[in-house]
Design a protein around this nucleic acid. Sequence first.
RNA 1: GCCCGGGUGGUGUAGUCCGGCCCAACAUGUGGGCCUGUCGAGCCCACGCCCCGGGUUCAAAUCCCGGCCCGGGCGCCA
Length: 499
Amino acid sequence: MWIPTHQMICEPQRIIAFFLESFCSFLRLSYRGKSWCDCSELHTLSHFVVYEFFYQISCKSRFTIELKTGLIPFLMRSSAITPEMDGAQVTVAGWVHEIRDLGGLIFIVLRDREGFVQITLPKKVVDKDVFKRAKKILRESVIKVEGIVKKEEKAPNGFEIIPKSLDILNESQAPLPLEVTEKVPADLDTRLDNRFMDLRRPKISSIFKIKSQVTKSIRDFLHNQGFIEVQTPKIVATATEGGTELFPISYFEKEAFLNQSPQLYKQILMSAGFEKVYEIGPIFRAEEHNTTRHLNEATSVDIEMSFTDHEGVMQILENLIARVYEDVVTKCEKELEILEIKLEIPDTPFQRITYTEAIELLGNQIPWGEDLDLQALKSLATKIEGIYFITDWPTKIKPFYVMAHEDERISKSFDLMHNYIELASGAQREHRYERLAENIKAKGLSVESFDFYLKAFRYGIPPHAGWGLGLERLIMAMLGLSNIREAMLFPRDRTRVSP
RNA sequence: GCCCGGGUGGUGUAGUCCGGCCCAACAUGUGGGCCUGUCGAGCCCACGCCCCGGGUUCAAAUCCCGGCCCGGGCGCCA
């Protein structure tokens, strides 16, 4: 039997590590295939076992072993507790979601990051002070409860916790700025003004847990494909690409702006020989748009890849999207269930339609060479379902860095569409210096102000292609959100800069 | 930026068309009371609201003007 030495007690992290390791392997062996415990729960469960172990040692020996591993040692999450733990002592902490006071019996629904757990206080069973404190508690206060798990069929999830102690870690004020329980709806504006509380609602936090999985999947996928993650500047000197308006900022004695996209920098990195780069970062657009699908600060997923063309990066994009959907379906089951979403993994390759075909499909109402407006895209979405590419756009409506086909009116470009919403846009890039400089002039932009960029094209740059994907657009499309603001923790729009 | 709709307790709505029956209703909430199996607990009592400014009128939440704010649609948008 292993007995902790004094030195080891002084190093609680090492003891924990030791126990986690040994008990995780113990549990893996012992409970393989058992229905009540899957591997994702092992980590939390091992905490529980360690707690029990120390509890037993404390009871049976003359030593009091104090394990201080932060504020609340062996804190358990609601999702890790099961009816099979009947009789075990656990510590839970979280927010008071609801209180149902039946007089001699009080139910507290405690909410933590993982879900809900019912704390039951029968007057005759629990400590008098604990009962009194529970009577006075205000909703959304943060509490810590130590108690015994009790298997109980009448309780939600088949168990409840009978508290030995109940501490109010932080009391909430009343009334609340909005209802976390969703009994009464709140306007988006009210919700965003009180986003900290809005985000306590499982439906809302699920969006961001899924968003986290999406970014993780993107990183995993791109790393596996040999991409390296980069960070490019968000403060830039010149109004780079034209088109969109930029936010001017005060930069000492110089003029500067917030960057609209990492486009020029990721291309420079192709000249640097990085070959495959990606960046997930903020982009800023100073457009006074006021719609449910635009933000003034958004997150862009950008890739740039050498020795390939537009087709090459389109394949990366469709495989990436399919992989992201697959990961969300398999790893965010709980969140999808909370959001009541049945997600279908799109088949690859995605449907491809050229700009010219799209115009024809729309009955040639739009003159060739003009951009597809919202009405046209909405009409197109009634004819093509789900996710699809529109390729080979007219060169003149695409930015200067897009490469043209042999027929120079058409560019090697594509947009990735979900119904009528543009998710991503990409192209093979013009890597030939003379042509690129010509394009810049043709767009009425100054070649001099692009010298920091053009320089990289004079000393050997491979042919390359890339795309930019709007992360919030993707989340919005995937989860069927009606407003892109729902996909941003603290959205920035035409009027909102706070919180 | 344009067009349309809106602003009523902490939150979400009704009332505005057709001024007076509205010192404003309902739900949720909060405070108090009853209640030992709730799970949107129930029952009883109480508390709390007409965006701001100006105008019309005997009388304005309601009509008119201006402002501010919000929502939807469009435009703009590598």
